[in-house]
Simulated assay, not measured.
Amino acid sequence: MTLLSVENLTVGFPTEDGQLRAVRGVSYEVNRGESVGIVGESGSGKSVTSLAIMGLLPRNAQVTGSVKLLGEELVGRTDKDLSQIRGRRIAMIFQDPLTSLNPVYTVGDQIAEAVRAHHGVSKHDALRRATDLLDIVGIPNPKLRARNYPHEMSGGMRQRIVIAIAMANNPDLIIADEPTTALDVTVQAQVLEALEAARAETGAALVLITHDLGVIAGHTDRVCVMYAGKLVETGTVDEIFYGPRMPYTLGLLGSLPRIDESGRQRLTPITGAPPSLLNLPPGCPFSPRCPMTRDRCDDVEPVLTATTGPDHRAACHFHTELAEAKAEDVF
């Protein structure tokens, strides 16, 4: 069953230099219990898309398109209406847990507050639920830690606190916006384990936003690749990692270290920088950085087209030429 349906979502911000089109016609679906990864460079529109779904963009944001949760339209709803949905049906884990947590309240009180916001339970029962949630996400001595303040915990533990808050009301969907940024590899693995524990406990679907392709490979079922505010490739993890059909996706994969290469293999970087979303030129936005670019690429922006199957789509005029291609051969 389709849980979340995003269709032709666009987000613009008025600026002194003109309209900044941060998201340009994004469409994807998330089924119940499914994990979908959204990957791309900084500024590609990943976080703005998730904030638009949650209704957390500033007042000057101009949002059009459709976002439906189990068939219920969310775009255009009042903040009062959305406050009944946030936390209870859709929960979000933000990138920086220290700014998400209130420094003057204990972590137990903050988790309990999330529980009481949507359920008429006593403070004692809410605190007991908070202790249980701390235990689920792997916080040692949960009864003691519930009385701690955020600054008394490490970055990894704070992130697990935020995950506990997200799962407090057994939501249908959890959106995790780069939950492992700035954490070392060991702590990153612990946080991802806590996230998987949260999904197992609640049965929630997951939208995982990250620029770490390793995290995407190990924790998602399907992948959406974003560039310049649009989806440029979608497919299963195997389709994206073993048969990319968009030069940008191939470049992202080529810039990663590989353990299956013998000797000292040089990484293959993507030259250049993403275009300004204020004045996008006609044609493919990746064209100035793409080694395969041709005249058609500068004139007509490609749309997502089915490649190896109906679920594997790529926005490239010449996606058939990328079959079996390697990043070092293209870039």
Results as ranks from 00 to 15, higher is better:
L206Y: 08
I139H: 13
L98F: 09
V36S: 03
L9F: 06
Y242N: 12
R289D: 06
H124R: 15
Q19M: 15
D212S: 10
L195F: 09
I270Q: 06
S276V: 02
A273E: 15
M153E: 07
D238V: 13
A164K: 09
S44Q: 04
F241V: 09
A182G: 06
P140M: 04
P244K: 11
A194W: 06
D132Y: 02
L9K: 06
A130Y: 06
N279I: 02
V26R: 00
P282S: 09
R59P: 00
L57S: 12
P171D: 04
G272Q: 08
G37D: 02
S5I: 00
L56M: 14
T220V: 14
Q95C: 09
H119K: 10
D221T: 12
E113F: 11
F331H: 13
L304I: 03
I111W: 08
G40N: 05
A166Q: 03
A166F: 07
M1A: 14
M167L: 13
V232W: 01
M92C: 07
E196N: 15
T202W: 12
P58K: 07
D238E: 15
K123Q: 13
R89S: 11
I259Q: 01
I136N: 03
I175L: 04
V237E: 10
P257S: 05
G45E: 06
K80H: 15
L144G: 00
